[in-house]
């Protein structure tokens, strides 16, 4: 009897794993197809779409794609993306930590009101304020530069502030009290006591910020108008426009390259991503 029960259980487990793996493969098929497609002849991508593996394997797509368009190579576009995503992320992480500390540890007049504003800022999508923001930055003469994309990131980002507030609230206030007794001011407690303890929420903010800025297409589309300033996302779109020819092999090669930083973050920081989403419900 017991043997039979174990047998059925084993069969159940096997069915479970087979089903899950098959489903995962179906899900990932488009990605695998793209990555392998970047090693195929463009003709092969079009004629033999059902075939998964390249025959023959070629790497020329990467060199032709890397040459870019309009006289600018993907080296320039990657550099731009790293500047935009990097500087934005530094600003977003630092400012959100400072603001988060204020909300988590200080009692100040109208705190509830400002916290409500923070939640509102968190919910309000960029699409809804992009037109007046553009008009504003256009008046300042900043359109065409990275400033309109990077600058707003330096004033605290709702999701990251929220993340930090949650995290700091979990740190026992006794630590603060002890520091105060030792003569530490509120401004000293933040860098000396709190900052070293909130590393996880800083890392989570940094990861999400970098990924979002890296993937962002709408803001560069609005604010940038010269190919020398394009980040990878925008350059890919221009690269794929019919006028630039339909070299699908090269397009897949550059598309694959554009996802590599995201893949690396995903592999290295998966735990932070998963916990960040699970604990705050940040959209991935």
């Amino acid at each position: 009897m017991k043997h039979g029960y174990q047998e059925t259980r084993r069969i159940h487990t096997i069915i479970y794993h087979v089903f899950t793996v098959i489903f995962a493969l179906v899900m990932l098929y488009p990605l695998i197809w793209m990555v392998l497609g970047s090693f195929k002849n463009s003709n092969e991508i079009l004629r033999n779409a059902a075939k998964l593996f390249p025959d023959p394997w070629i790497t020329t797509n990467y060199s032709t794609g890397w040459a870019g368009f309009a006289g600018y190579g993907f080296g320039t576009f990657f550099k731009n993306s790293f500047i935009i995503a990097g500087v934005s992320t530094i600003g977003a992480v630092i400012s959100s930590a400072i603001v988060g500390y204020g909300f988590a540890r200080c009692h100040f007049p109208l705190k509830g009101f400002w916290f409500g504003c923070m939640l509102l800022a968190m919910m309000l999508p960029f699409q809804m304020i992009m037109i007046p923001q553009y008009i504003l930055f256009n008046k300042m003469g900043w359109v065409g530069s990275f400033l309109p994309i990077i600058l707003p990131q330096w004033f605290g980002q709702g999701f990251f502030i929220f993340l930090n507030v949650q995290f700091i609230k979990g740190i026992p206030a006794d630590l603060d009290d002890a520091a105060t007794i030792d003569g530490c001011s509120i401004y000293g407690i933040f860098p000396r006591i709190i900052l070293p303890l909130i590393k996880p929420s800083l890392v989570t903010s940094a990861i999400f910020s970098f990924m979002w800025r890296w993937d962002d297409f709408l803001a560069p589309l609005i604010y940038l108008n010269d190919p020398s300033t394009y980040p990878v996302s925008y350059a890919l779109k221009m690269f794929s426009d019919p006028t630039a020819g339909s070299d699908w092999g090269a397009m897949f090669a550059m598309a694959t390259l554009s996802l590599i930083p995201i893949f690396i973050i995903f592999l290295a920081f998966q735990r932070y991503l998963v916990e960040g989403i699970a604990s705050t419900g940040i959209k991935g």
């Binding site: 400012s95 009692h107 304020i129 401004y187 933040f190």
Partner: peptide, 23 residues
Amino acid sequence: QGVAGYVFTALFIVGFLAFMIIP
């Protein structure tokens, strides 16, 4: 705390007014 709270959240408040409320 009343003053420090505003010092720490000043960045957000300025950004909120400049990049959200005014637009």
